[in-house]
């Protein structure tokens, strides 16, 4: 009897000891720093839309985008090798991280021979107690091509457009993220004279990791029905892009299909005249390369 209790006593002492070690470990770790959710998206751009991601401090990203011609329809088919003969838009740009939250960038588009400046700021970052990330984005575009007629651009100001967007993003799991991006575009002189200067948009986008470095990406931008005039002579469509994103170290490649011919928001939000239904879909790709300029 006595021995039995003595054994019990020994065992209980040992278990107290084991518990102690683990609970001490828990106490030790409770002082961990706040960890922000990282890599909600792998690239500053999804297919068409900007994501909530910015560059890290001192990082420079070189981004090249390409949009081919229509796969089908009047302008596609075998005559243009399903659009591969045509480049509807090309974009070359640099983004630089001033801080971990603030990025500025500059770029040039083939469409309208335009130059753009952009700024992106991470307002909120998702963490344990913050359910979403919010990033503000602003972009001004300047058309430099010759005017098609004398009164197309009466002043330099008429060549400009300005786009503002707030991106609300959430990483639900390591392999699934979603974003919602309300936007507002102001064009000093819309290319379509029937159109108003103000245009509103709502973008939705997502990323689904299908294999370690491969993700399916898609985004859709609602433009029609948000106060845009309904009786325009030209038919405009909502841009939809679907793609495959491949990550290899410092590079991110994106292979995609979309009905928009143009790359930056100031161009594709107002000017998407092609539709997925009538062969207006095109192939496109993007390459981003990251350079670390300032060693931390």
């Amino acid at each position: 009897m006595n021995k039995f209790f003595f054994c019990l006593l020994l065992i209980s002492t040992f278990s107290v000891c084991a518990q102690d070690m683990d609970s001490i470990m828990q106490n030790l770790d409770s002082g961990a720093e706040r960890e922000f959710v990282q890599a909600t998206f792998k690239s500053p751009r999804l297919v068409l839309l900007q994501t909530n991601e910015t560059q890290n401090k001192g990082d420079l990203a070189f981004w090249i985008g390409h949009r081919f011609g229509d796969i089908g329809g009047e302008f596609g088919g075998s005559h243009t090798l399903f659009g591969l003969d045509v480049a509807t838009d090309l974009y070359i740009g640099f983004d630089y991280g001033i801080t971990d939250r603030m990025t500025i960038g500059v770029g040039r588009s083939k469409f309208n021979e335009s130059y753009n400046l952009l700024a992106k700021y991470k307002l909120l970052r998702q963490h344990e107690f913050m359910p979403v990330s919010v990033t503000l984005f602003g972009q001004s575009n300047w058309i430099t091509r010759k005017a098609f007629n004398n009164n197309e651009f009466p002043s330099q100001n008429d060549r400009t457009s300005h786009f503002f967007q707030a991106t609300v993003a959430k990483k639900f799991s390591p392999s699934f993220s979603l974003m919602l991006s309300p936007g507002y575009l102001f064009r000093a002189q819309p290319q379509d004279p029937q159109e108003m200067q103000n245009l509103f948009s709502v973008g939705i986008g997502g990323r689904l990791k299908i294999y370690k470095r491969f993700s399916l990406i898609a985004d859709y931008t609602l433009v029609n029905g948000l106060g845009r005039s309904k009786d325009l002579n030209t038919e405009y469509y909502n841009p939809l892009g679907i793609g495959l994103e491949i990550e290899t170290g410092g590079h991110v490649f994106s292979l995609n299909f979309q009905n928009s011919s143009y790359i930056i928001e100031n161009n594709f939000i107002p000017n998407t005249q092609k539709s997925w239904e009538d062969g207006g879909v095109r192939f496109g790709f993007a390459i981003s390369r990251n350079f670390n300029l300032a060693g931390r």
Partner: peptide
């Protein structure tokens, strides 16, 4: 016991890949 996220790299992108991939 060491938190994986507590490792600091010189390159931020490398740190992200370390954690993510």
């Amino acid at each position: 016991q060491i938190r994986t996220r507590s490792f600091q790299f010189r390159k931020a992108l490398m740190q992200e890949h370390f954690n993510e991939n």
